[in-house]
């Protein structure tokens, strides 16, 4: 299974290396948001009780997670493309492990998203945000990014199998990512939220991702917040991946 996943993963990496523009394309939106929201909410930081000195410092982890959501919730589209191109059938008539087909797509998407977030961090740094640019902290943040990428790519693949069409998949993707963003502390600190949103945020996996990335990248490093968030996302990733794989297997027989 590991070898199959590796070979298929290689194939997808090769393809995206050949079309680097395509991967960069989904970066446009987070970068725009970083710039627009960063300027729009500039004065938020002057409000009493705001956790950071400048809004952009606060917002960077939010944009990082946004990049993950936008980047990985497209993964199912590639699966649908492969199905209609007949390449999935080609894999399925071979003795290759069924799980590795989903696994390789999901991993590819997650790795792609890690590369994208690194570019976003670079852009944020150039815009003058003061992040903890310690390689270890960045690595820890990327671990969260990778796991969240796995989770959302898995959801997207699972939905692709259920819906079997691109259009509703894209609509579902948007329907899922935007509210999850707003129901988290990506843009607004917790104490500024109405109480009911705070409750939703407590069960929102995106919130855990945002807060653990923020815990290592912005201000004082808080490894307790980081690791509790990491565990939550790890569980989430495993569950969604298992669901996607079982959906994929369930379709055939």
């Amino acid at each position: 299974m590991i070898a199959d996943t590796w070979h298929l993963f290689n194939k997808y990496m090769k393809i995206s290396m050949r079309m680097p523009l395509w991967s960069l394309f989904s970066l446009v939106q987070p970068l725009l948001w970083l710039f627009i929201f960063g300027s729009l909410f500039q004065n938020f930081a002057h409000l009493p009780g705001f956790p950071t000195d400048s809004y952009i410092d606060y917002f960077v982890p939010g944009v990082v997670i946004m990049t993950v959501l936008f980047g990985s919730s497209w993964s199912g589209v590639s699966l649908l493309r492969e199905i209609s191109a007949g390449t999935v059938d080609k894999m399925l008539v071979s003795p290759a492990s069924r799980s590795s087909i989903v696994l390789s797509l999901v991993l590819h998407s997650a790795v792609q998203v890690v590369a994208q977030t690194l570019i976003v961090l670079l852009a944020a740094w150039m815009l003058g945000s003061s992040l903890n640019v310690n390689p270890i902290y960045i690595l820890l943040a990327m671990l969260v990014v990778l796991l969240l990428g796995v989770a959302f790519a898995a959801i997207s693949n699972g939905l692709a199998i259920m819906l079997q069409r691109e259009e509703p998949l894209i609509i579902m993707g948007n329907m899922m990512t935007l509210p999850l963003m707003f129901f988290s502390t990506a843009m607004v600190p917790k104490q500024f939220m109405p109480e009911w949103i705070q409750y939703i945020a407590m069960i929102n996996p995106v919130e855990y991702a945002v807060s653990s990335v923020r815990a290592v990248l912005v201000g004082e490093v808080d490894l307790v917040v980081y690791s509790s968030g990491l565990i939550a996302i790890l569980v989430f990733a495993i569950a969604t991946l298992a669901w996607a794989i079982s959906a994929f297997k369930g379709l055939r027989d």
């Binding site: 050949r18 209609s84 191109a85 007949g86 390449t87």
Partner: peptide
Amino acid sequence: ETGVDYFL
């Protein structure tokens, strides 16, 4: 449907 990958 041809099962070859166009991008390889």
